[in-house]
């Protein structure tokens, strides 16, 4: 049904159809957990894991699931993978799990996942769905890392917990508070729109 090359479905998540900056999906975790770069990676990879496995599984099952109950079935499948991711983080990365707090279980209602499943996986074959899920997940991760890095650098003067700005820099506290998340998000979205406009 789609004439575009398979690789496009992987690459589009990073820039052309970036889930955070273009589709404006998953804004809640984007704003909430990006106070540090490490949190950005953790949240991004947990979401990618859920996204890849649930899009592939749903794509395989897409012809067996009656249309009327599809949202219910999708939610059960997503919730299962989210719980697995949550248990895995609690077992092997307890510190990261603690700092992400309730936002890992909340991946269940992250609209990137349901959005990609509704818009793509329920209509395409497992291979394309895998590429789409992976691309969107990693695009989400990269965006969270960029946001986390900016906020951590300006708000704490560190990057991945390592002090990088010289000691005379006085951290702008506002950047690690919720307000700073909105500043960073808005600025990034503005830059991305300006670049796209300049290109076309």
């Amino acid at each position: 049904m789609d004439k575009k090359p398979a690789i496009y479905h992987f690459l589009k998540g990073f820039w052309d159809e970036n889930p955070v900056l273009v589709q404006i999906l998953g804004t809640c975790p984007t704003l909430a957990v990006t106070a540090t770069a490490v949190n950005g990676i953790g949240m991004g990879l947990a979401t990618t894991f859920v996204l890849v496995f649930s899009t592939v599984l749903i794509s395989i099952l897409r012809k067996l699931i009656p249309n009327e109950v599809r949202i219910g079935v999708f939610t059960v499948i997503i919730a299962t993978f989210v719980t697995l991711a949550d248990l895995f983080l609690k077992a092997y990365f307890p510190d990261l799990s603690k700092s992400l707090g309730p936002f890992v279980p909340l991946i269940v209602v992250n609209c990137i996942i349901l959005g990609r499943i509704e818009a793509f996986a329920s209509k395409n074959n497992p291979w394309l769905s895998f590429l789409d899920g992976l691309g969107n997940g990693l695009g989400f991760t990269v965006t969270l890392i960029v946001m986390g890095s900016i906020r951590e650098l300006l708000g704490k003067g560190t990057w991945f917990g390592i002090p990088v700005l010289l000691s005379f820099y006085k951290p702008m506290l506002v950047m690690i508070l919720p307000t700073g998340a909105f500043f960073t998000y808005g600025t990034l979205m503005g830059i991305s729109n300006a670049l796209k406009k300049a290109k076309s």
Binding site: I65, P66, V69, G72, V73, V76, I77, T80, T83, L84
Partner: peptide, 19 residues
């Protein structure tokens, strides 16, 4: 609908219990 939801929930339940 009932069959689809039941099967999916059962499999999910078992998978989560084991993990």
């Amino acid at each position: 609908m009932i069959i689809a939801l039941t099967i999916v929930s059962l499999i999910a339940g078992f998978a989560l219990a084991f993990s």
